[in-house]
Design a binder for these strands. Sequence first.
DNA 1: TTATTATTAGTCAAAAATAGTCAAACTAAT
DNA 2: ATTAGTTTGACTATTTTTGACTAATAATAA
Lengths: 156, 156
Amino acid sequence: MTDIIEAYLKKVLNQKEQVEIRRSEIAELFDCVPSQINYVINTRFTIQKGYLVESKRGGGGYIRIIKVQVLDESDMLNTMIEVIGNSIFERDAKSVVQKLYDDKIISKREAKLMIVAMDKSLYTGDRVTDNRVRANLLRSMLANLRYEEPNNRKAD
Amino acid sequence: MTDIIEAYLKKVLNQKEQVEIRRSEIAELFDCVPSQINYVINTRFTIQKGYLVESKRGGGGYIRIIKVQVLDESDMLNTMIEVIGNSIFERDAKSVVQKLYDDKIISKREAKLMIVAMDKSLYTGDRVTDNRVRANLLRSMLANLRYEEPNNRKAD
DNA sequence: TTATTATTAGTCAAAAATAGTCAAACTAAT
DNA sequence: ATTAGTTTGACTATTTTTGACTAATAATAA
């Protein structure tokens, strides 16, 4: 069943850059429970496989799958994400950003944006919490740099 | 329905600086309850998205939506820093970043970096703390942009 | 001028309409 | 037999829609 739904979605994505579905409709179409759709998406449309997923709940809700291009620097970024782990000092975080800039993975403006966001003074004041939140932020930002969206995609 | 009404109002605002409506008329036009109009305005025409709303009750009452005019980039950044204040929700923070992107003050990559950094899931889990830290981060990042040379983007 | 009524818009919370999570049960592959 | 992958459904979270009630202003009557 997962394979069938995956194939269906990929067929659509072969024609278009993105596909937008209503979860319950697809579930009905393939006669399965709605959460099956989440399973398909979580296992087959991951960022590693080159897909980005957005969704909205409530009236007019949807799930949108977008094909993205995984960039060359992805491997290096993954390595850095691992190095960051779940806690990082301000000093080390700034070094990571500096390295990205030195390696020309990010622009100067991007580097400065990221560096100011690593500053201790912005956080809670609790060292353990702060290092953890900082790591979360930095990892998320790096993860975001791994891919590029098609530029004709519908704005949200 | 919300999306349809939003699109309608934005279309009018594309031609003019402001739009003035009679709540009951628009509700009738789209066949919805009047308070739906308030919902659209409260969620789609916020100050974070660059709109001001004025209204009057009673005979001849109206709702007026005004596009906020800012002079230049630095002015816009200062305005947004004020709007952020010392606490901001994820949703509103993302609106602010989106607005800066729409106005071409930041690039798409910069916008994405900032938007992922606003995500609730990265913080402590305590709402009050998180909104405060998020505001600190966003204000710092915007303040930083004031002193940078404008980015030289090609085509995003 | 003051009080009353009519005409608007605003607020808030309940209900409805979505999607997400998680773990137990099931199935297939080794 | 064991393990990994899949299916299912109960429960949760988010967003929109709806309507009863409230508040403000204008128009009218006293």
